[in-house]
Design a binder for these strands. Structure first.
Length: 510
RNA sequence: GAAUCGGUAGCUCAGCUGGUAGAGCAGCGGCCUUUUAAGCCGCGGGUCGUGGGUUCGAGCCCCACCCGAUUCACCA
């Protein structure tokens, strides 16, 4: 049939030849299905399946499994190999005399490679060395792979530690070819399963409280709800520019105006900024808005929800992250921002003017420039001196009004808003406020942002006339929060790069 | 965007002061019916990230570029 192309490696050519040979034997290399009764781990965990001594009589139970061949140990007329399915791996014992000469010698020994899919039916026994193994009575070819997969080997040394040889460890290849990473590095699957369970736990926690999961536009004519640079695109039929959302805040608040008491959305957001260990151009937040509540209530809510997440994932409130053990047991400390800064730097910023704060920033060796307003300067000081030191989950409260154009003025502290950020492992994981629902004030704040923009702050917010119209119709007092799902997933899975909690992190094209 | 480190066989890596590329696993041929990094005998496999340059000669030295990792800067 198809001659091997010159650009193919020797191993790729050989595998294509094997494909042709299978067809010549009237074996479909890509059949349509297989009747699976058991997964690998189910068999290993179910003692009652083991026949001892090995029992091939009709009364012993049969299992049928399917998966990839991952290792092979061929000893003439009998072989051991492992099959990997979606739950794990199990060893199979295969004998020529059980399945026939052609299937064994030709189909299995000659034409089956590591990575190929096969189905096995047989009974379960324990080998001399005590490994639970399926003794194959039927062998079926289920899919040819024509590209060799990496072949890491795991072995336990005398100390009982698992040592991996030839691990598929090149990070670039692992990110670019996540499918291969998932095949050969089983711990990767665990990370992503945990991430999904984390999201499920949060969703259940909110659903139990009757908050409504909603969907809002990703393509927005005016981007808002955060300070960030957007991705821009164009709609041809309407002939208008649109932006990929940087946040969904303003839409969820419109729904609060519309009469929902609690709405949330797991939102893919997009920010046209640098990539790093903590930043991917698209990332996930869950935003939640609840009517009749304020930011104090939201702190209670958040610490309870995250404690619940930790319990669900780790059966404990304590999670090991790098060198630290982080305890999510509620309540978490609540420290006003100025107090936190004073604790770390000795400077009390309360009531200070722009120029005074600029001078303090310089004293603290913070690089400043003209476009930085008071809010930005304080944020810089905080980010440099306080944030990295907050390992245990902590609420930092009461932010300067200049850096929070969507938050409500503090009920008692002048110049501040009712806002908090949750910090954990030295990074922000959530941002929340008592929502600003005074339309006159909101308009003034947008106008303040417009000035900052004119002064060169590219991330200052744009005035959204429709959003203002919405809250002019009246928005109940509300609390809102955004929780960074990727950041939280990093903590919950002890991953030190955001790329390790994203299946397909953004990469430059090959 | 800056600095540092890296890119050699399918995978993991070695490659000296520049002399024309190696190992283990994987692959191919053979032996082997309870092995487990199975073993034993034999064999093949490479535009050394890309493009220039220096040199009799470049994986190695020089220049430019591409890709990645880490740290830093901005942002969640």
């Amino acid at each position: 049939m198809s001659n091997a192309e010159p650009s193919l490696s020797e191993q790729q050519q050989i595998r294509r030849e094997k494909l042709d040979q299978l067809k010549k034997l009237n074996i479909n290399p890509y059949p349509y299905g297989y009747d699976v009764t058991h997964y690998s781990t189910d068999i290993i965990q179910d003692e009652s399946l083991i026949t001892d001594p090995p029992d091939d009589s009709e009364k012993s139970e049969r299992v049928s499994i399917a998966g990839r061949v991952m290792t092979r140990r061929i000893m003439g007329k009998a072989s051991f190999f492992t099959i990997q399915d979606s739950k794990g791996t199990i060893q199979v014992y295969l004998r020529r005399d059980d399945i026939g000469v052609e299937l064994y010698n030709t189909v299995f020994k000659k034409l089956t490679d590591i990575g190929d899919f096969i189905g096995i039916k047989g009974f379960v026994f324990k080998t001399r060395t005590g490994e639970i193994t399926v003794h194959a009575e039927a062998f079926e070819f289920l899919g040819k792979t024509i590209r060799p997969i990496p072949t890491p080997k795991e072995v336990e040394n005398e100390a009982g530690e698992t040592v991996t040889y030839d691990a598929f460890s090149d990070k670039e290849l692992r990110y670019r070819q996540r499918y291969v990473d998932l095949i050969v590095n089983p711990e990767v699957r665990e990370v992503f399963v945990k991430r999904t369970k984390m999201v499920q736990a949060m969703r259940e926690f909110m659903n139990e409280r009757d908050y409504l999961e909603v969907e809002t536009p990703i393509l927005q004519p005016i981007y808002g709800g955060a300070a960030a640079k957007p991705f821009k695109t164009h709609h041809n039929a309407l002939d208008i520019d649109l932006y990929l959302r940087i946040a969904n805040e303003l839409y969820l608040k419109r729904l609060i105006v519309g009469g929902f008491d609690g709405v949330y959305e797991f939102s893919k957001d997009f920010r046209n900024e640098g990539l790093s260990r903590f930043h991917n151009p698209e990332f996930t937040q869950v935003e939640l808005y609840v009517a009749w509540k304020d930011y104090n209530w939201m702190m209670d809510f958040m610490e309870q929800m995250i404690e619940h997440v930790a319990q669900t994932l780790h059966a404990s409130t304590k999670v090991t992250v790098g060198k630290h053990e982080i305890d999510f047991k509620a309540p978490w400390p609540r420290i006003p921002m100025y107090e936190a800064i004073q604790n770390e730097t000795g400077h009390d910023l309360t009531g200070k003017s722009d120029d005074e704060i600029r001078a303090i920033a310089k004293e603290l060796h913070i690089e400043t420039d003209k476009s930085m307003g008071k809010g930005k300067l304080i944020d810089e000081i905080f980010g440099e001196y306080v944030e990295p030191k907050l390992i245990q989950p902590t609420f930092i409260t009461d932010y300067p009004i200049e850096m929070s154009p969507l938050a409500k003025k503090h009920r008692s502290k002048d110049g501040l808003v009712e806002r908090f950020e949750a910090i954990c492992n030295g990074k922000e994981i959530a941002n929340a406020f008592t929502e600003l629902n005074d339309p006159i004030d909101q308009r003034a704040r947008f106008e303040e942002q417009a000035k900052l923009r004119a002064d060169g702050d590219e991330e200052a917010m744009t005035l959204d006339e429709d959003f203002l119209r919405a809250i002019e119709y009246g928005m109940p007092p509300s609390a809102g929060i955004g929780i960074g799902i990727d950041r939280l997933a990093m903590i919950m899975t002890d991953s030190d790069s955001i790329r390790d909690v994203l299946f397909f992190p953004q990469m430059r094209p090959e």
